[in-house]
Design a protein around this nucleic acid. Sequence first.
DNA 1: CCGCAAACCTGACAGCGTCAAGATAAGATC
DNA 2: GATCTTATCTTGACGCTGTCAGGTTTGCGG
Lengths: 217, 217
Amino acid sequence: MKTIDTKAAAAAPQMRPYHHGDLASALLDAAERELTDKGFEGFSLRGVAKRAGVSHAAPAHHFQDVNGLLTELAARGFERLVSRQLAFRKKADPEPRAQIGASVLGYIAFAVENPSLFRLMFGSQRPDFNGERLVQAARSAFDDLVALAAKATGNSDPPDKDHTALVDVAGVWAVAHGLADLLSAGRLPLLHNLPEAIRNQIILKLVERVVEPVQPS
Amino acid sequence: MKTIDTKAAAAAPQMRPYHHGDLASALLDAAERELTDKGFEGFSLRGVAKRAGVSHAAPAHHFQDVNGLLTELAARGFERLVSRQLAFRKKADPEPRAQIGASVLGYIAFAVENPSLFRLMFGSQRPDFNGERLVQAARSAFDDLVALAAKATGNSDPPDKDHTALVDVAGVWAVAHGLADLLSAGRLPLLHNLPEAIRNQIILKLVERVVEPVQPS
DNA sequence: CCGCAAACCTGACAGCGTCAAGATAAGATC
DNA sequence: GATCTTATCTTGACGCTGTCAGGTTTGCGG
């Protein structure tokens, strides 16, 4: 008979509502809380299981091991990173360079809002970066930026032969990631202590410099 | 000064004396090997002790705990980061902007050469960043860059009121750190697969863009 | 209704960091 | 030179971790 818990079925109808209902996503939620609470170095699989209210060995049935769980967590992180950038772009001027600036601001905002997740995504070796899932999620963020840079500088097509296009992409990527990493770690007090408006202004100015080739008049 | 017992050393060189002589630095050496071998996430204090040939509890007499050892390791890392930058600067043109470029190349070279140590220094929360030792070592790297940027742009004195000087410093810092982090993690294959000469050329071009304020006239 | 397989639990194992207590060597004091 | 002191290092134990083996519950297909 249909003795399925209604709220569990409503929460994730496509998942298998066997015992717990949807332990897989419940574990992911718990894992994210564990990550933000304990940091990615204090992360514990047993702690996640306890948060989800299951035994310490239950996660093994949904994720191969703790690294598998972290891999899925990182993949979701990359997807959210992209959507954060898109949200910033939506509210910005459609002009390509403004879009790049908005993307960078979104990138940095994500890192500051989710420092532990950001470290897991870029600083950890525990997620499986050979897996299809994670690779694709990570690449989508990159491809987005490449396309934007190409539109802004007029250098079309993927950057290969011509290094000038490469400089643009690498520059934006580097500035965004460098600021994101330093700011999310609180390692750049000069910028960190500024009011957000001014800080964003500075960031945008930096992006302007990087993306615009120096014109020798 | 520590003098190893002569008869013990002469009689059986492979049989270590009860008192090591200079275990503190031996542990640091072993810790660095452990770090490069196992990565900063697989790092184990017991593994370090085994490498140094002592019992698992011996390190406690020289470092408060594993985080204390990692703190010292990170502090030495910052010192080496500075010296690596200085080495690059020595071989470069004394002109301020060339010096900045050399510094960035040194920064990146250090990160690529010591990826695990770099993560420990910037991505980990285990070292004690409140301790005097580590703070001073980390600041020296930063101050160096600030002084250089001031010299290059003509904006003297520490960057405080005027944000333009701040943009310069933050820009160079961000580009250097962003590229260093991404390259050392192999997360920027576009640049990573290029021959080093071309890669350095691109990096220098990027630094040029960031450090040079856009001149409207 | 029955059986089966998926989902979950209990218990065990080795490895980890750390504390307590004992053993040893080096130096100080007499 | 003998004894005391103290720093150094070892051994053993504790609770924590991730993972595996085997047993138990649960829902679904026959």
